[in-house]
Amino acid sequence: MSITGSQQDAAAAQDEVELERALSAESLGDAPMAGRVPLIELPIVRSMFRSARRNLVPPLITFVLILIAWQILCSRPGATLPSPTVVWSEAGDLIKHPFFNNGPQDIGLGWRVMVSVQRVMVGFGFAAVAGVLLGTLVGQSVWAMRGLDPIFQVLRTVPPLAWLPLALAAFRDSNPSAIFVIFITSIWPIIINTAVGVRNIPQDYRNVAKVLRLNPFEFFTKIMVPSAAPYIFTGLRIGIGLAWLAIVAAEMLTGGVGIGFFIWDAWNSSRLPDIIVALGYIGVTGFVLDRLVGAIGTFITRGTVAN
């Protein structure tokens, strides 16, 4: 689908190049070379502009409409939440300068998000490795599936924060506890999806592996992982989403410099505009993480589409 789309775009761009050349030959007369360089680039710029207009204008309009509605609702006397103008005047600095650094506890939200992302990456990284390995085990072995699947199905419903007291007791430190909560939150979809992917490896590929006498390690790297990659990345994508959901809550309780603790701190000192700005940061970061894992997945699994 995406291939034909880009082909169409390319074809359209090609048409425009021809058109521009025809125009340039007419208008520029005897100096075609001088006009050619920008004219070839121009349609590309124009088509980028067109796709930007198509993808950016509608969300911008809805965003402005929401701001207006919010402004009206929160400007009434007795409104409990700050309006957009109040947010801008009181917390605008947080938006304008994401990376200021005025000492250990007074840093920009960009830095705080980075700290949280780093925690998520460590916990999620462990979850990805352990999840793929456990998922492989559950997908390959009927006994492992019968033994482990019921446990996984029960544990995956436990809310992330319910693990936190246990983690604090076990690690006696807030940072590893937060990382553990990320780990335990994001591992389940990775395990389950990997297991489904491994169970769905076509018998043909298994036969090829048998005829070639691939050893278990070769089978894992050359057949299993590439064949299950689309499933694995679905799991990773769900996992990183859950991890990002859990980090804020975990940081609220464990403290430190993450974005979650910032919100808790802002609440304690009644800085509601700061909280609203932080929500924006969290949303955008979560979106970027999701798209990042999705893009990596698309890139890596580009060959595995069934044929």
Binding site: D204, Y205, N207, K210, V211, G303, T304
Partner: peptide, 27 residues
């Protein structure tokens, strides 16, 4: 047990879709 001394051409080709033509033979 299966082995490369009795290579099979499968009815539905069974090429690994993530490898190129060369990669499939090279494997």
């Amino acid at each position: 047990s299966p082995g490369p001394d009795r290579a099979i051409v499968f009815q539905n080709h069974s090429l690994l879709p993530w490898l190129t033509v060369y990669g499939n033979v090279r494997l």
